[in-house]
Design a protein around this nucleic acid. Structure first.
Lengths: 335, 335
DNA sequence: TTGTACGCGTTATCAG
DNA sequence: CTGATAACGCGTACAA
């Protein structure tokens, strides 16, 4: 494997000093039009590309951002991909590359990456309420952005989707449609709520809005959801009432449960979901839904991160929230 | 952002020379038990981690592998994620990290990554029949592994799933079940076939087996697939015959088309698919299917790549094929 | 078994 | 506006 041309080779060919070549690239001092031309020609002729390692060593910046990613996770793969793609694109705009680290490496992964100076910043996804990586980040003097909100956010930069508003929007939609009670299939109200706190925030949104509209709610945990099946079997609209359905986790299971009983969303019941746009649209009856917008989250993360990097700050405390919006489709009678 | 301890700091604390520290890490010369202990203690005490850039510069290896990934692609997101996860895990076993590059950067992306010595090898996914990146790789003297098979494979290392066998297996399954004709929803037989040659290979597998069993086949392109709808409307089993259905692309659309007409896979027709395991299992009626096994492909790629790296070869010509297997589920009467 | 000394290809400082 | 030159932190002959 050939060694490749160095800035010294470029300098020789252009008839200038090596440092001049460096300055041409960085633009940190003014260059005469003539030398500029000759250096650029030489670079093109040699197909020169600066050595990343040497650059990192001398300049102490890698132009790389690590993203710590949960693969086998509660998140949907499409969501993850969308997030990552958007992030990589944003990074490229700022001339940064992206290093992938699995969340499985846990806290050691973050330590390894930051300690070895392989990157200038890190993004940590799927943050839990009590996340060790949050504690590490506080001691690190290194820019880290968290996706998700740990319990203690002091000294941390976090970004997350507005799950509370999502819950509220879904309930209000069902209330507006005249439903008199709600059945939620997905994460449990409090059981799972302590691990990822977005579950709790979503539940709070649902509960708050349901109370405001005086709607009783019953929760069923996916994927077992025997209770949910029981609700369907008992009849969705007892006593002249009307049961609206909210789905979060276990969407495909829930849809199957409906289909097996000949229940059609939008006709036999109003069904809304918190899911991806793709999922909402690929159902037999497309779902009225609030979709977590991974690309919006990604853009917000990138914006904030590059602001940090440019400023040279380790981290800027604060939680950014990506707004939730509801899209109406055929699964609610209205559309 | 503090500079972090260097091997010199470790050396000073351990009372040895810097080179000794280096040799302790590389294991490239024998160290007395005593010095070994002291160096390791010093490293632990300082929480030392070698500077990746300095390492790359001095040792001319980055311990990083780039993976060129198509995000918004014909591939399913779950497939991509599974592939990447498996690859990252394999890489970590060999003490390598993974750099993510979007296929959108095209040929320049590959050039940039390899030229800048940001990685020791690259994996290029979603290779087309006439892929410019293949031509670049041949001139590069740099280990690259392609996923997918370009038309001209001389000098290239490729890995791919056995799409031809997949087509054959699906046809044979339908033939065994007594179907007398086949309807294929997905990629066109030849129209799209020139771009990604796996489409052609799949078509060849289908056609070959269909001819062997004397089954007529009609092809319908997703996502429009008006012809497919027409077949359904015309009745699947005319003249005492029996139409078996094969789905590749446009799976959800195809399933919806069946559902809208009250057709239940396994009851009203035998349906088989080439799709992911997840897709096969999350249908209302789980699908008998051949699943491209991204993790198998990933492992094969990793194995081959690290063999190359360890050997120091630029690339070892040859196409590796990951075998196809069919899993029976409820969508064919049998299961 | 260990230490010395040099080079890897940049960036950045200091002269000119 | 430009050219020498000293870091940057680690790998590795070469010497002892």
């Amino acid at each position: 494997m050939g060694r490749g041309p160095t800035s010294k080779d470029v300098a020789r060919l252009a008839g200038v000093s090596q440092s001049t070549v460096s300055y041409v690239m960085s633009g940190k001092r003014s260059i005469s039009a003539e030398t500029l031309r000759r250096v650029e020609e030489a670079m093109a002729a040699l197909n020169y590309q600066p050595h990343a390692g040497a650059r990192a060593l001398a300049g102490s910046r890698t132009n790389t951002i690590a993203i710590v990613m949960p693969f086998a996770s509660a998140y949907d793969a499409g969501q993850l991909m969308a997030f990552v793609e958007e992030f990589v694109l944003a990074a490229r705009v700022h001339d940064y590359d992206v290093l992938l680290v699995t969340a499985e490496e846990g806290i050691e992964g973050l330590r390894r990456i930051t300690g070895g100076r392989q990157c200038d910043a890190a993004v940590v996804m799927q943050v839990t309420a009590q996340d060790q990586r949050a504690d590490l980040a506080r001691t690190l003097d290194f820019p880290v952005i968290f996706i998700g909100v740990p319990e203690d956010t002091t000294g941390l930069a976090c970004v997350d989707f507005d799950f509370e508003a999502a819950g509220r929007l879904l309930v209000e939609e069902l209330a507006d449609l005249g439903n008199t009670r709600l059945s939620v299939l997905g994460w449990g109200a409090d059981s799972v709520g302590r691990d990822y706190n977005y579950i709790g925030r979503f539940a709070r949104g649902v509960t708050g809005a349901a109370e405001a509209h005086r709607l009783p709610v019953d929760w069923h945990l996916a994927p077992a959801a025997d209770g949910f099946a029981a609700v369907l079997d008992a009849g969705l609209h007892p006593d002249g009432g009307r049961t609206g359905i909210i789905m979060t986790a276990g969407l495909s299971g829930g849809m199957r449960a409906l289909a097996l009983r000949g229940l059609v969303p939008g006709r036999d019941a109003d069904v809304v979901a918190l899911c991806t746009e793709a999922e909402a649209e690929e159902q037999v009856v497309p779902l009225t839904a609030v979709s977590t917008q991974p690309r919006d989250v990604s853009r917000m993360v990138a914006e904030r991160l590059f602001a940090l990097i440019d400023a040279g700050c380790p981290a800027q405390e604060g939680v950014d929230i990506v707004p939730a919006t509801l899209v109406r489709r055929a699964s609610t009678g209205r559309a």
